[in-house]
Design a protein around this nucleic acid. Structure first.
Length: 930
RNA sequence: GCUCACGUGGCGGAAUUGGUAGACGCGCUAGAUUCAGGUUCUAGUGAGUAACAUCGUGGAGGUUCGAGUCCUCUCGUGAGCACCA
């Protein structure tokens, strides 16, 4: 008992009380159109968090960052008379649960349920104003029924190029297409193409899930192999996914990432006749350099390679193909520096000048992009240049750099030269002209190419949504009837991957057999499936009839104008994957008339990563003991730049004695940024790292809540700095917020000798004086404006200023404190509720009954903000010389006269001539004199 | 290599249209209170000086009465992409 530190205010008592109170009264229940308590006169506001994957390790401090931000906005909008939708749920299918299950033998459903339970508890302890009645869980059959239903929508439509829209597949049947042709047009289709197979994970992966030839999860090698897989035709939407980014209020960086990922490039297809053979089509973005094409390169996997290779070259070509195919994607990119390749012995004819150009194969040409073949223009492409130099191939300059510069290797745009009928044309015109020329002769056409590949949508996993598809003995697939949804995965005891591409569901022999003739699809959907549409389900989370009712969707997603979720907050890690997939699904649903807006998320904000506490490392050259040994822990020898040096981790007990910045030339560059004031020989490097278990710098939100309270954690995370910025954790900073809240508490309450709290005698029901009126009105204004700007750190700072002013006031008008609680409520809801209720007890006439969270956001009185007097800065030649206080209504002339009569100003204009006086009313007077 | 973003005290960060640089918090210093303090309160805290002067927003130029803010160049840091023809 005695060892436990006394709490500066009893958050540990009142926080759970209010949380229970909100729960019991369903304080943040949100009504839908059609509900009895729905108020149609209010505007809607849909504020969304990226729902978490309920991992076994629980919430980390990054979660409450975004969640607190949306909670503040949501509560603020609520107080401002909006119908606010602010829900939470669980993205609970996925690899980690399954892998944990394999390790422990527990069913993934059990561990998932357990983890969800603990996540929900943690979030409730943070006091977020969620409508828990709308909680969703992607692994709930009532939820994934509709994930499967949406899949069937994708299965049952095709992309109509003419209207650039998805249309029902029945259109095609009406046109008399064959069954195979129809299957080949579906947005969800089966493909036999090479896919990313990860043997360790025992599953295939989407392109987006492979980073540098390794799996994004786990970092295992990934190989390409042809397999029969389900694909989603996201490429059809490539253009719309780019175009419709324009209207979104998203960070530029994320838009750019998506644009790059989709990778649109304009160019042309050009046919080259192979001598004594067929035509090879290449894609180029620079058709204007066709005259400079001196050789051609095919990807080693190109289907023509076999037929065109001449007999003498056959062995060498086969050997090269073999080396390339044995390389993993990773090796292929890692060894990107040196070019390799081999001549096939074949020649192609350049259509523009009938020149014979040799055909090579090289692994710098990728089968997956364009046509898998290029025309090489070494004079104007860096890669082709390198290759041509290496193999002594001819280089012909066909573009003259602008501004008369010399051609040196390669160049971008310029004027065409050595190019026959293109000579003299600037690049853009040359491109247009050559495309026309090629089109006339039917050996080329304009072409827009995308990097984006179709989305590989099946996984060989147990813990995911089964496909609502069956296969007939004749090899055809078809959908199961909607009435059979949800299709629940069979209960397996052994859900280990089979180690082969055969999915684990194959082990459920009874389940697999759908009918006498048909077997079920054994693959499952990837984790992304559930997160592609969860924001829609929140609008109408318990609807058994539809994935979301039309009215609810129309209301919350705001059919018409821009529409969509009003604010979506989450980390950058989903910049391409989730955000691209969700946009794609949404557009399909929009085309099919199932939703009312073309885009799901109107405004997106990325919260910045929270790094671990700053770490200080102190060291010095040579041997010897560090002087401030008591401050330095963990001294060890380490090799820095090949030399052994003394390195020490510097962990002061809450103190940090760091001196001035030193000249970088004077210290070792590796670590030294600072020197100790007490001992200039010791350099100290301060930096923070990503939180990780191995580094031991992970901060657990539960610990913070226990020690300082949920309000304090919320406030601290918002005060750290701008929401979108990367910032280091600081336990001292948390203390600071705790002190602030304790000061707020003591504005209202005071304690006696025994530590009992009672209302402060300084609180009085008195009229507000001018000074305090100004202070409270300024806070209302600034906090409100800052919340709108998501500038929470400055809003909190405004409340601190108010607190400091109130602390100094001898008498604190109760009405001011009551207003203050309404401002504080979105940020620190528990203490605001507690103090509001205590204020109401002491001053029943001044406060309304009910939650402070249900109060209206206070309005400020603009007249209280203006002073009678204003401080004016006096400058001479732009330098501050004095400040004077003048009546607000002073004329420009009088102000100028006052300035020139000022002693300090006179001092500085003595002996020189006044040239000009600049008067900015209410701000400054600048006297220009020389 | 390419693209984007960012450089402000000992630290995290504030600064409407160009108009008092450093709000607020941490840390630090001194004093008071307390049996005690990881308590609270008061004052101070960019450098520099006895005090002024002066110098200060990565660096160098420029525009302006006036620049953290606008322009040019340059250096550094972080993130993303990386044979995409």
């Amino acid at each position: 008992m005695s060892s436990e530190r006394r709490k500066p205010f009893p958050f540990d008592v009142f926080e759970p009380v209010w949380q229970a109170e909100w729960d019991a009264k369903k304080a943040f229940h949100t009504a839908n159109p059609g509900d009895a308590d729905f108020d149609a006169t209010k505007p809607k506001f849909y504020v969304l968090d990226m729902f978490p994957y309920p991992s076994g390790s629980g919430l980390h401090v990054g979660h409450p960052e975004g969640y607190t931000a949306t909670d503040i906005i949501g509560r603020y909008k609520r107080m401002n008379g909006h119908n606010v939708l602010h829900p939470m749920g669980w993205d609970a299918f996925g690899l980690p649960a399954e892998q944990y299950a394999i390790k422990t033998g527990q069913h993934p459903r059990t561990t998932t349920e357990h983890n969800v339970e603990s996540f929900r508890g943690q979030l409730k302890r943070l006091g977020f104003a969620y409508d828990w009645d709308r909680e969703v869980n992607t692994t709930d059959p009532g939820y994934f029924k509709w994930t499967q239903w949406i899949f069937l929508k994708l299965y049952d439509c095709y992309f109509d190029e003419l209207s650039q829209k998805a249309r029902p597949i029945s259109d095609l049947a009406a046109q008399g297409l064959s069954r195979d042709d129809i299957d080949a047009r579906r947005l969800a289709f089966v493909s036999e193409a090479p896919v990313n197979w990860c043997p360790q994970l025992g599953t295939v992966l989407a392109n987006e899930e492979v980073v540098d030839g390794k799996s994004e999860v786990g970092g295992f090698p990934v190989e390409r192999r042809p397999m029969r897989q389900w694909m989603l035709r996201i490429t059809s939407y490539a253009q719309r996914l780019i175009d419709e980014l324009a209207g979104l209020d998203w960070p530029d960086g994320i838009k750019m990432l998506q644009r790059n990922w989709i990778g649109r490039s304009e160019g042309a297809l050009v046919d080259f006749q192979i001598e004594g053979g067929e035509k090879v089509t290449v894609f180029t973005t620079r058709p204007d350099t066709l005259f400079g094409a001196t050789y051609m390169v095919l990807s080693p996997e190109h289907p023509f390679v076999e037929s065109i290779t001449t007999a003498p070259k056959r062995d060498a070509v086969l050997a090269y193909q073999k080396t390339v195919s044995s390389k993993s994607d990773m090796e292929r990119t890692e060894l990107a520096k040196e070019k390799t390749g081999i001549f096939t012995g074949a020649y192609a004819i350049n259509p523009v000048n009938d020149e014979r150009i040799p055909i090579w194969i090289a692994d710098y040409v990728l089968m997956g992009y364009g046509t898998g073949a290029i025309m090489a223009v070494p004079a104007h492409d860096e890669r082709d240049y390198e290759f041509a130099k290496l193999f002594s191939l001819p280089i012909t300059q066909v573009v003259q750099p602008p501004d008369g510069k010399e051609w040196q290797g390669f160049c971008d745009d310029g004027i065409a030269v050595n190019s026959g009928f293109l000579d003299g044309l600037p690049t853009a015109e040359a491109k247009a002209k050559i495309i026309d020329w090629l089109a006339e002769r039917r050996c080329g056409e304009q072409k827009i190419n995308f990097k984006l590949r179709d989305w590989l949508f099946s996984r060989q996993r147990y813990w995911g949504e089964p496909f609502p598809i069956v296969w007939e003995a004749d090899g055809h697939h078809h959908a199961i009837p909607e009435s059979e949804l949800p299709l629940v995965p069979p209960d397996l005891v052994d859900f280990q991957p089979t180690g082969t591409p055969e999915p684990p569901l194959s082990k459920a022999t009874d389940w697999v057999q759908y009918s006498a003739t048909a077997r079920r699809e054994l693959n499952t959907m990837p984790q992304w499936a559930g997160s592609c549409w969860y924001y829609l389900r929140y609008c109408d989370a318990r609807n058994p009839e539809r994935f979301v009712s039309r009215e609810a969707e129309k209301y919350w997603m705001g059919g018409g104008k821009p529409g969509g979720v009003d604010l979506y907050v989450g980390g950058t890690e989903h910049a391409v994957l989730h955000l691209l997939y969700a946009r794609f699904w949404h557009k399909v649903l929009y085309d099919l008339g199932e939703v009312s807006t073309p885009e799901p998320f109107q405004r997106l904000v990325n919260q910045g990563l929270i790094l671990g506490e700053m770490e200080y490392t102190a060291f010095r050259e040579g041997t010897g003991v560090l002087v401030s040994a008591k401050d330095v822990k963990d001294v060890r020898e380490e090799s820095v730049d090949g030399k052994v040096k003394l390195v020490a981790t510097y962990k002061l007990s809450g103190q940090m004695v760091i001196g001035e910045r030193v000249n970088e030339d004077d210290v070792e560059k590796v670590n030294a940024v600072f020197v100790l004031k007490s001992n200039p020989e010791i350099a100290v490097d301060a930096r923070s790292f990503k939180m990780s278990k191995s580094r031991g710098n992970v901060v657990n939100p539960d610990t913070v809540i226990q020690q300082y309270g949920a309000d304090c954690l919320r406030l601290y995370e918002m005060f750290m700095g701008p929401l979108e910025q990367v910032k280091p954790w600081s336990m001292n900073g948390v203390e600071g917020q705790s002190r602030f809240l304790a000061r707020v508490w003591r504005l209202v309450m005071e304690s006696d000798q025994e530590g009992n709290w009672s209302p402060s005698p300084q609180l009085k029901d008195v009229p507000t004086d001018k000074k305090l009126a100004k202070a409270i009105n300024e806070t209302i204004k600034k906090a409100g404006e800052d919340i709108e700007k998501l500038s929470f750190n400055t809003a909190i700072s405004a409340m601190m200023v108010l607190t400091n002013t109130l602390t100094q006031a001898e008498v604190r008008p109760a009405s001011v404190l009551i207003t203050f609680m309404r401002i504080l409520c979105p940020f620190a809801p528990h203490i605001a509720e507690e103090l509001y209720s205590r204020l109401r007890l002491a001053f029943p006439a001044l406060a309304t009954s009910g939650f402070v969270a249900d109060c209206a956001w206070p309005t400020y009185d603009a007249s209280a903000l203006v002073d009678d007097e204003v401080e004016i800065v006096l400058q001479v030649n732009g330098k501050l010389r004095d400040r004077i206080t003048v009546p607000i209504a002073i004329t420009k002339e009088d102000l100028e006269a006052l300035a020139l009569a000022n002693d300090r100003v006179k001092e500085f204009i003595a002996g020189v001539t006044v040239r000009k006086v600049i008067v900015v009313p209410g701000k400054i007077v600048n006297v220009v004199a020389n």
